[in-house]
Design a binder for these strands. Structure first.
Length: 562
RNA sequence: GCGCCUAUAGCUCAGUGGAUAGAGCAACGGACUUCUAAUCCGUGUGUCGGAGGUUCGAGUCCUCCUAGGCGCGCCA
């Protein structure tokens, strides 16, 4: 459904185009092609409801001063049938449009009709999109960086769904390769240590307590001690299988607790087992992107502007992570995704250009692959930075984070900033100042509205229908601003989705809540004037629907009382 | 050395090439007999890191420089 804003803007744009064409036809204005002008909502309310820069863009072609062009256009605007109250030429040549404020009221019946669907658009046109995020090594638990990726990826996916994309969430499981070998050796060493044998622990092994716990569980499940005398390779394979399943379960559980649920869990191992990796390499070889040197197989990444070439298959015959990743992305495109989005930690940025290059070499449009790099999270506790490392086992897990600051606060904090921005997460602050946490501010707006509506029901009232009351009674500045903000919602969602900027929704929700709180403090909803009360009830009900939806898109709960 | 990200108010950060650059926090002063004071109202601060350039118009685009973060492995 077309949003109110789109409809009104479309009307004005059309009016401008017709005016320009008419002016050209009767010789008042000379130009070859209509420039790509903008109709925007001015930052400053004193500049009208909408403004266009067309006169400034036409000035050169028309060989006239911008303000003069604006005058001519203004004389050609059709005033009939539009809600245009005033047109003004301002500054260097802006044309400012002032509309009769009536147009904004349309949004209230629209919200009533669409309910929790209000905000949906068809910006994505059903395009098949995949968002791959977190994809943490399944050898440990999720840390703060993973948590940021989870919040960003899931919110992005939510926004894209609302914006009319066909979205699939995917987790790539790195269940093969060196780190799994290493994982297996660590499990083995812990096993023998727990069985009372004095064996050294691998230096590069996983030192975390969670590994010890895993092995304890393994031993408990093996009363016959069959592992003690098993073939070492077979034993390690069983250990790894057991531990990976357990870790993945834990990861899945933690993410689910964080409100993140995936459509697909994709195993890297299957790419090797199915021959997808070797066939991707064969394809690259056919395209003459491959050569051999010192026993290894290399990809000519220098052809994609990289500093040096990259190894795809090591001298020992084992393909690199990069080789698997190429096969993985080929697989993604072959599954029909028209837009592939990966969310990576900024420490992986060196990998971006060569992956895109490889994708292009395989014949896919590399512009359809977007990699969102999120800057790393620094965790502060007691005023000190906590260095996080999976190997050393010293890190705050997602589980602990949720337990300490709560899912809602954590998700909001991770998403409120642009992915480009470094994130200092102060645990003490998140805990001690939880009362002036922006997330409560937004949720409080929701709870307050619920409270109003509860009281109305207690008095035996019923929610009025938007169509059955005089919405134009809503004339207070606070009311008009609030309604205007509701009008922006669909545009905010699609802009946040298309530009991969989930922080815009965090900001929007906060601003909307602020306008509501402001309204609440200056106006009572339950008033003696029955018509005004009805109109205000419709207003707050609409605000509640949008706040709830915004919270939902951010993955936060919308409490009915606080 | 090369590459990516960042630099905007005291702090943390927003800011689709548009007009007089904004918000939260912090500080100070007010508002509960009234639908939840986890709220509201008021008070002010900027050489948008620096220098050039493109443009009618630059915090925004381009080049160079400076500072910080992160990468540059037959690890992932």
């Amino acid at each position: 459904m077309e949003s109110v804003l789109e409809r009104v803007k479309g009307q004005i744009v059309q009016n401008i185009q017709i005016a320009a064409e008419n002016a050209r036809r009767n010789g008042a204005l000379n130009f070859e092609t209509l420039p790509d002008f903008v109709l925007e909502v001015p930052r400053d309310k004193g500049h009208g409801d909408f403004a266009t820069n067309i006169a400034m863009l036409l000035a050169r072609q028309a060989k006239m001063a911008p303000r003069q062009v604006a005058e001519i256009l203004n004389n050609h605007f059709s005033k009939e049938g539009s809600s245009m109250a005033k047109v003004e030429i301002a500054g260097p040549g802006f044309i400012n449009f002032y509309l009769d404020s009536k147009w904004v009221y349309e949004v209230l019946p629209q919200i009533e009709e669409q309910g929790d669907k209000y905000g949906d658009s068809n910006a994505g046109q059903g395009k098949k999109v995949q968002v791959e995020f977190v994809s943490a090594n399944p050898t440990g638990l999720l840390h703060m960086g993973n948590a940021r990726g989870a919040a960003l990826g899931d919110t992005m996916a939510n926004l894209m769904q609302a914006a009319g994309f066909d979205v699939s969430r995917e987790f790539y499981i790195n269940d093969t390769g060196n780190q799994i070998e290493n994982f297996g050796r660590s499990l083995e060493a812990r096993y023998f240590q727990l069985m009372g044998q004095d064996v050294p622990f691998p230096e590069e092994g996983y030192h975390g307590q969670d590994i010890i716990d895993t092995v304890k569980g393994l031993i408990a499940a093996d009363p016959d001690q069959k592992y003690l005398n098993m073939d070492p390779e077979a034993r390690k394979a069983e250990f790894v299988e057991y531990a990976l399943a357990e870790k993945l379960n834990a990861i899945r559980g933690n993410l689910s607790q964080f409100g993140v649920n995936y459509d697909v869990w994709f195993s890297e191992k299957t790419l090797h087992d199915s021959g997808a990796v070797s066939s991707a390499i064969a394809e690259l070889r056919a395209g003459d992107y491959i050569y051999e040197n010192e026993g290894a197989i290399w990809l000519k990444t220098t052809a994609f502007g990289e500093e040096k070439d990259e190894v795809l298959v090591r001298g020992n015959g084992i393909p690199t992570y990069f080789a698997a990743d190429i096969a993985y992305h080929k697989n993604k495109f072959d599954r029909g995704f028209q837009w592939v989005i990966n969310i990576w930690g900024a420490d992986h940025h060196g990998h971006v250009a060569r992956l895109k290059g490889a994708v292009k070499a395989l014949g896919y449009e590399s512009d359809n692959l977007d990699i969102v790099l999120m800057q790393l999270v620094r965790l502060f506790k007691g005023g000190e930075i906590i260095r996080m490392s999976k190997r050393s086992g010293e890190f705050i897990t997602l589980e602990e984070l949720i337990a300490e600051v709560g899912k809602d606060a954590a998700r909001y904090f991770f998403v409120m900033r642009s992915p480009d921005s470094h994130l200092d997460f102060d645990m003490d602050l998140a805990k001690s100042q939880s009362t002036d946490n922006p997330v409560y501010y937004i949720q409080y707006a929701h709870a307050r509205i619920c409270s109003i509506l509860r009281q109305m029901e207690d008095k035996g009232g019923t929610l009025p229908k938007a169509g059955a009351c005089d919405l134009e009674r809503l004339q207070e500045p606070a009311e008009l601003e609030l309604i205007r903000k509701l009008v922006d919602f669909p545009t905010e969602i699609s802009a946040a989705a298309v530009n991969l900027e989930p922080h815009r929704m965090a900001r929007y929700a906060h601003e909307l809540a602020g306008l509501f709180h402001s309204f609440y403090n200056s106006n009572r909803v339950m008033v003696d004037d029955e018509e005004l009360q009805k109109a205000r009830l419709v207003l707050v009900k609409s605000v509640r629907a949008v706040v709830r939806r915004a919270l939902g898109l951010l993955g936060l709960t919308a409490p009915e009382s606080m």
